[in-house]
């Protein structure tokens, strides 16, 4: 049995909140609602915390702070966005300096809407977060014990149908982000994908015999082009994307330059590649809705 549910320690960060939600978060810890009866402690220290409570919308100044706190929290961890500003940006979402809700920066597990969110709904959100926390723990344990073995291996043409299905699932959130459902990864047909297998190397992440992630790449003029790194939505944030990247970079270790691209609004992808050592060098307009950001990394930086 897991004890995560019995002792969730929280850290509370105020983005650009008006303090309404902050006061309600603290009110749910104070005598009337007393979250501590469920074992909740407000730690104030990311290294001790299990649940990250964020209030307020994200902007370019607090983006790095929020990411820093998130990365300092030990696994398993969950993120709870509290209040409508943290959920979507609320009435401030159109502001020139507001990126939007927390999900523009971090993977959010629970949304607690409201302006301000009531302590009852915050407690309910924390309660729901505990279930997700436990699920994440089970997945991590299963991966650690080897009952769910994660294998990263080259894919072949028989996997094409499964990879295509996964690709369409994984790119849904991107398509929603840009409101562009004519996205090339969503439009690709099976025969086109099978054609790709002739020129491109595919890698797949397999768990329990099911493909849950994939990445592809090829080398041209000493540069390795990596693209379409996809992970099944329920297996995201478990380090699978990073393992796929490491595998394909290792496979193309002879190349002196690596190049990836992503959409200009996909901040999380850009951050992900930055952590792996990639730097932005070019931004190109694809259509009215979408720009493409190109990022590169040189072999001596690996």
């Amino acid at each position: 049995m897991s004890y995560l549910k019995r002792s969730p320690w929280v850290i509370h960060y105020d983005g650009t909140s008006c303090n309404g939600c902050d006061i309600e978060v603290l009110a749910s810890l104070a005598p009337r609602y007393d979250l501590e009866r469920l074992g909740v402690i407000n730690t104030g220290n990311p290294k001790h915390a299990d649940i990250f409570l964020i209030t307020g919308s994200m902007n370019d100044q607090n983006r790095e702070v929020v990411q820093n706190i998130y990365e300092q929290m030990p696994d398993p961890k969950v993120v709870v966005a509290i209040g409508i500003c943290a959920t979507s940006g609320g009435i401030f979402s159109e502001c020139y300096n507001v990126l939007g809700g927390v999900n523009k920066v971090l993977p959010v597990d629970i949304y607690v809407p409201g302006c301000a969110a009531r302590p009852e709904s915050i407690i309910d959100g924390v309660e729901k977060a505990l279930k997700i926390l436990e699920d994440k723990k089970h997945k991590l344990v299963a991966m650690g014990l080897g009952t769910e073995i994660l294998a990263i291996e080259p894919a072949n043409i028989e996997d094409a149908a499964e990879i295509l299905a996964l690709q369409k699932l994984a790119y849904q959130s991107e398509a929603e982000l840009y409101n562009d459902f004519a996205f090339p990864p969503l439009m690709q047909t099976l025969s086109e994908l099978k054609e790709d297998f002739k020129t491109i190397i595919f890698f797949k992440a397999v768990m329990n015999g099911i493909i849950i992630g994939s990445v592809r790449g090829y080398v041209k003029d000493d540069t390795c082009y990596i693209y379409r790194r996809i992970v099944h939505p329920i297996y995201q944030n478990l380090g699978i994307g990073k393992k796929l990247m490491n595998e394909i970079e290792f496979h193309f270790g002879f190349a002196s330059r690596f190049e990836v691209f992503t959409g200009h609004k996909s901040k999380r992808n850009i951050n992900f590649y930055e952590r792996l050592g990639y730097r932005m060098f070019k931004c190109e307009k694809v259509n009215d809705k979408r720009h493409r950001v190109y990022m590169e990394k040189f072999a001596d930086r690996i």
Binding site: Y3, R6, S7, P31, D34, E36, R37, G39, D50
Partner: peptide, 28 residues
């Protein structure tokens, strides 16, 4: 302490739960 502050407070065994939880967490 919780009763002195007018709260219900955690269960008596809470320190055990805390430590057992910490054993399950990643060590940074």
């Amino acid at each position: 302490t919780a009763r002195m502050q007018g709260r219900v407070g955690p269960p008596i065994l809470q320190p055990f739960y805390d430590v057992l939880k910490l054993m399950e967490k990643e060590s940074l």
